[in-house]
Nucleic acid binder design. Structure first.
Lengths: 157, 157
DNA sequence: TATTGTTATACTCTATAACTATA
DNA sequence: TATAGTTATAGAGTATAACAATA
């Protein structure tokens, strides 16, 4: 593809991300869930029960987006909504037995994918890469405090 | 935000990318163009004149998407369409004088942003990071040969 | 009055299908 | 017949505004 763009940080980040996302999606296919859904399960599997809004905050999405995410997971019998006894406005969202099993298997597949993706790297490179990436990803908390903007007008350059 | 997700490669890649894209968008704001538009200008500034379809291929987008991109750039007087004399079906898209100036200034701002973004890294880290990222971004050419999927169901995990 | 979940709606970016003009 | 550009349309994903139930 574009050799001109191949030297550009934004291009590299975007395509590394797309590439990894595609690997993840492929790995999770047998479970019938997407990477995004696995992330939701991870968040919902917290020590304390989370309301939809709690989970939305953790995931960095809007509460209206959360409705659809929970709808999907509930349709797949992976989570259940319960009215909170303490505050009946809230939906506590918990994993079903099937959800727990799917989460465990999904995490296993996810780790495999991650390892395969980083397999070409030496342990030292691996450690350094993740450390740097964490730094670059963390900056966002300083500046972009709003909700996730659609990443479409996002930098291809 | 989600500490649980903070250790995940997909999450880190996505947020590093969003973060950098946001920085780029901010930097280019005075020029009235987006990072994506700058990328289009970079591609169109090739040695040989490119048709819309040529440029679309370079950018990895559909030709219908290219129409809108060129429309926008033309509205901003950054590019011009010319009917190709050799094949009158083709639109040769060239940069206007304003387009060339905007490209030059945009590239300057882009490089600044990139440097600022990587400023915390030592030269050695910097080199290593880009080398690794190139490897991870390059895999996509092996597997995802189709057009860019929308990255929305993309891995947050 | 404020908050939670929900729905309806709109917006952005994307691709597919069908049209036109050229080849 | 096939290709380049275009348009109309639809899909995925997002957010904003308005509503009902609850606080």
């Amino acid at each position: 593809m574009a050799d001109l763009l191949n030297a550009r940080l934004g291009y590299l980040l975007k395509h590394a991300q797309l590439n990894f996302a595609a690997s993840g999606a492929r790995a999770l296919e047998p479970l019938g869930i997407t990477g995004r859904e696995l992330a939701v399960l991870v968040v919902l599997d917290a020590a304390e029960p989370l309301s939809q809004q709690d989970a939305a905050r953790e995931l960095g999405v809007d509460r209206t987006t959360m409705v659809a995410l929970v709808d999907d997971l509930e349709a797949k019998d992976l989570v259940e909504r319960h009215r909170s006894p303490e505050d009946r406005r809230k939906n506590i969202v918990g994993l079903t037995a099937h959800g727990k099993k799917t989460l465990a298997e999904g995490e296993r597949l996810h780790k495999e994918t991650e390892s395969a993706f980083l397999a070409e790297l030496s342990p030292i490179e691996n450690e350094l890469f993740l450390r740097i990436l964490k730094k670059l990803a963390a900056d966002s908390e300083l500046e972009a405090d709003g909700p996730l903007t659609t990443d479409s007008d996002a930098e291809d350059a």
